[in-house]
Design a protein around this nucleic acid. Structure first.
Length: 585
RNA sequence: GAGCCCUUAGCUCAGCCGGAUAGAGCAACAGCCUUCUAAGCUGUAGGUCACUGGUUCGAAUCCAGUAGGGCUCGCCA
């Protein structure tokens, strides 16, 4: 149950009742009415701005509208108080029993607590990672992978039918360079001395085993042959090897995709680019024109040239975009349009893309493209992820591909673990630079948010083990705890913690709708802090300890709370792909 | 030159759809271990929300402009 959505319905219902009774004008638009927790706990449990947003339309003073609402809400069975505050907020205070019942809900629901059906099964496509198949994933890709994966999980949790997709850019000049690089490594594997890898090719050592594997498979079949004979088969071989590498990187991070779409096989070879161009032509969205050079920067080799252009400006882009290169080949953008048309035809009216910040300049044109290929019926939302800085005790990790000191995502995952990488990647909003300090993220202290949250979960398990010892044979199943006398949870600090847990469904919804999975990590951190605080209070005040050896009923009630914390923390961690731990070692 | 993103405490960052006295962590200072794990907790101090104007009952939040930082800019993907 989302407490706040529930009370929003209650408020709207009361407003309608007031309108029916002639105390408010009929037909007021309640769209802007919000119900949320007040920033100050002292203001109550539930706060609504209804009076403020309706006052003008009702031609009344905000506080007068508020007075009507207060009169109605005061008699709500769950409310103990309703007050007007400030300019016209209405604040509600709820019975402890209401919150205790919510805790019972959590125990009965388990880790699916927080799920909702806002998406109503609507299909949504989240495309993320889509790293070029030319080498191992780097740390920046890792961030996109984590953000995309968590975002997909959030959408699924609120009831969307999510498809997680990876677009393999295996059709351009880059993969030809990859093939040439592998050909060199292949000759090397056959005993030739190839010397320094030429500029423009991929110098990484990770291609050595690929060259060796090719030599093992094909022998000296390609040696001394002209490039046009070996380029295509070696390219295919190399791309397959790179995708295997990347799939391994993803698996290490526990990221999985449902669909891998290939630019070469699914778009180019199936003539989909020509199709999309024809589609656009029928709508008069294609013409031949000459672009102005970008002002303020002078490309050395610029020469005005008529090109086939897409009318991106019709859909809000800054300039029209080329579909064809000067050699007649389609641009990457043209293929990408075809790819998005394909997505749309597969049933996705809502598409999400998680991209690196260096693709920011591409957002408008792709959104224009999606509007065009769907006749305005589909939307593309882009989350841009900023850079990740790798640090070692505050000092930047020096990286150079040439010197062989490049730190890959896999290096990082192998060193600190997938869970740590995933959590830390969500400790900043996606559009902020993120510092990833090896020393800090592996530290066993409260300065390390992953540790801090995991410790809270481990503590909930520890309490359960303690209780089982103190009361031999006691039934500590969720079902048994849900049946405990939760009215015994009477201490203010305990109720505060329950309220925190009850905020989880709202947090899930808002994080999903805003496309901001980092909110999950921040929520978990705050919840862990609340729990650690209550725990420590039990050190000073023995009466507040969870396990009270002389009071079985009280212990059960408190264990219900502890278990509730465990469920929500575990649920949140799993949502972002982190496995909760049973104990710290 | 243009577009997009960013600017909040000494540092690193949250701040939900415009809402009440702007919040955490670190660092600083003062405390808490015979105790369910001190791998933790409590308190104090710290702010012209870059700047200027606008929108309105109300702006860190929306709009315009200015300054600073990042990314990008036909024939790369």
């Amino acid at each position: 149950m989302n407490v706040f959505s529930y009370f929003r319905e209650q408020v709207v219902k009361e407003l309608e009742t007031l309108a029916a009774a002639g105390k408010l004008p009929p037909g007021l638009d309640t769209a802007r009415v919000t119900v949320e927790p007040p920033r100050e706990a002292a203001h109550g449990d539930i706060s609504t701005n209804a009076a403020l947003v309706l006052a003008k339309a009702a031609a009344m003073k905000p506080r007068d509208v508020a007075a009507l609402l207060v009169e109605r809400l005061r008699s709500h069975p769950e409310a103990t108080a309703a007050d007007i505050a400030g300019p016209g907020f209405v604040n509600l205070r709820l019975r402890d029993s209401f919150w205790q019942t919510r805790l019972g809900d959590i125990l009965r629901t388990g880790e699916t607590y927080g799920a909702a059906d806002i998406g109503a099964g609507q299909a949504i496509n989240v495309e993320y990672v889509s790293a070029n198949p030319t080498g191992p994933m780097h740390v920046g890709h890792g961030r996109g992978a984590v953000v995309g994966d968590a975002l997909a999980a959030l959408y699924a949790k609120i009831g969307y039918k999510v498809t997680r997709e990876y677009y393999v850019n295996d059709a351009g000049a880059q993969v030809d360079q990859l093939a040439r690089s592998v050909h060199l490594r292949y000759r090397e594997a056959l005993g030739e001395t190839v010397g320094a890898i030429p500029d423009g090719l991929y110098p990484g050592e990770y291609l050595q085993p690929v060259g060796a594997a090719l030599a093992a498979r094909d022998g000296d079949k390609w040696r001394g042959r002209p490039e046009d004979e070996w380029l295509a088969p070696i390219r295919e071989f190399a791309i397959a090897a790179m995708m295997e590498l990347i799939r391994g990187d993803l698996a290490a991070l526990h990221v999985r995709h449902d669909v891998f779409s290939s630019e070469r096989h699914d778009v180019v070879e199936r003539q989909r680019v020509g199709e999309v161009v024809e589609f656009l032509r029928q709508r008069d969205l294609v013409y031949t024109g000459t672009l102005e050079p970008p002002k303020g920067m002078k490309p050395d080799d610029w020469e005005p040239r008529p090109q086939m252009l897409f009318r991106a400006t019709t859909f809000g882009d800054d300039v029209d975009r080329p579909l064809q290169k000067s050699d007649g080949a389609w641009t990457y953008f043209a293929a990408d349009m075809a790819y998005h048309l394909d997505k749309y035809r597969r049933g996705f009216a809502r598409m999400i893309g998680v991209w690196g910040a260096d693709h920011g300049g591409y957002v408008k044109r792709m959104q224009a493209a999606v509007a065009a290929i769907s006749d305005g019926k589909a939307g593309l939302e882009i989350r841009l992820c900023q850079l990740v800085n790798l640090l070692e005790k505050g000092e930047p990790v020096k990286m150079s591909k040439r010197a062989g000191t490049f730190v890959t995502l896999r290096d990082v995952v192998d060193r600190v673990g997938a869970g740590v990488v995933r959590f830390i990647m969500l400790t900043r909003k996606h559009d902020q630079h993120l510092d990833f300090d090896f020393a800090k993220v592996t530290e066993q202290s409260k300065d390390n948010p992953v540790f801090y949250v995991q410790y809270a979960h481990a503590r909930t398990r520890s309490v359960m083990r303690q209780a089982a010892e103190a009361f031999p044979g006691i039934d500590l199943s969720d079902r048994a705890l849900a049946g405990a006398d939760l009215a015994r949870l009477a201490h203010a600090d305990e109720i505060v913690l329950v309220k925190h847990l009850a905020g989880w469904p709202r947090l899930v919804e808002s994080a999903a709708e805003a496309g901001e999975p980092h909110r999950v990590a921040f929520y978990l951190y705050d919840l862990a802090a609340s729990f650690h605080a209550l725990w420590t209070r039990g050190k000073d005040e023995t009466a507040l300890r969870f396990v009270a050896a002389d009071d079985r009923a009280l212990t059960l009630a408190r264990l219900a709370l502890v278990r509730g914390v465990g469920i929500v923390v575990a649920s949140g961690l799993r949502l972002i792909g982190v496995e909760p731990v049973e104990e710290m070692r």
